[in-house]
Amino acid sequence: MCHKSVGLVQNIVERAGIATVALTVRPEITWGVGVPRAAYVRFPTGAPLGEPGQAWQHRTILRAVLSLLETVDEPGTIWELPFRWRRMRPEEGVEL
């Protein structure tokens, strides 16, 4: 339900001339409601930025989400970010 609420509010904010991007962990709901731009992560509900206490992970996700604002030029698209829950560790990749 949170995803539906995000989608309805996001589209109204976008209409007001503000560029928006949403995180989603339930892409079918984001797709069904229809939003300007969204970033999908295969993370559990309740932690779309990543695990508690993993500040570098939160930074990596937020940087990737924000980058969509400058690259996506087609409305209504969902972009899957290349991160995996609990396999995402600093030693396994360069922080974005």
């Binding site: 996001q10 928006t20 930025l49």
Partner: peptide
Amino acid sequence: GVDVAVLVPG
């Protein structure tokens, strides 16, 4: 004066 909004679900 906001230019950009980031929305995050629960």
